[in-house]
Computed example of a mutant assay.
Amino acid sequence: MHISELKSLEVNGLVSHNVLVDEFPVVVEYVLTNYSDSLLEILDTRKGLLKKSRWQT
């Protein structure tokens, strides 16, 4: 993923980043936020509903 995409995700509250300065070389890690976790739950629910509706048609 390109750095500008990661920054956009961070600005929109979907990821946060941590800089690990104790590591060499310095490590930057990106993690999902609680907000993005809640969106994943919604998407999983929609995915389940879509699968269910496909079986019924």
Rank of each mutant, 00 (worst) to 15 (best):
T45I: 06
S38N: 07
V27Q: 07
V27N: 02
V28M: 10
S53P: 01
L32E: 10
R54E: 13
L6W: 10
K47E: 06
S8W: 08
V31Q: 12
Q56A: 14
V21H: 12
L40P: 00
S16F: 04
L40Q: 05
V15M: 07
Y35T: 07
S4A: 15
N34K: 11
L39D: 00
N18D: 11
F24Y: 00
P25K: 02
K47D: 04
M1H: 10
V11T: 14
Y30R: 11
S36P: 05
I3H: 15
S38R: 06
F24I: 01
L43M: 12
H17F: 14
N18H: 11
K47Q: 07
K52M: 03
T45C: 04
T57W: 01
L9Q: 09
R54S: 10
S53A: 09
L20F: 09
T57L: 06
N18K: 12
L20N: 10
N18Y: 10
H2S: 14
S38A: 06
L50R: 10
V31R: 13
E29T: 15
V19R: 15
V28C: 08
G48R: 02
E23G: 00
S36D: 06
V11M: 11
T45F: 07
I3P: 14
S36A: 14
V26A: 03
L49I: 02
N12D: 14
P25H: 02
E23M: 04
I42V: 15
N34R: 08
P25C: 02
R46Q: 03
L6A: 12
T57N: 04
K52P: 00
V15E: 03
R46D: 01
R46Y: 05
N18F: 09
E10L: 07
E41H: 07
Y30H: 13
S36Y: 09
R46T: 03
S16Y: 05
L6R: 12
Q56C: 12
S4V: 12
V21M: 07
E23R: 10
V28N: 05
E5L: 14
L14D: 15
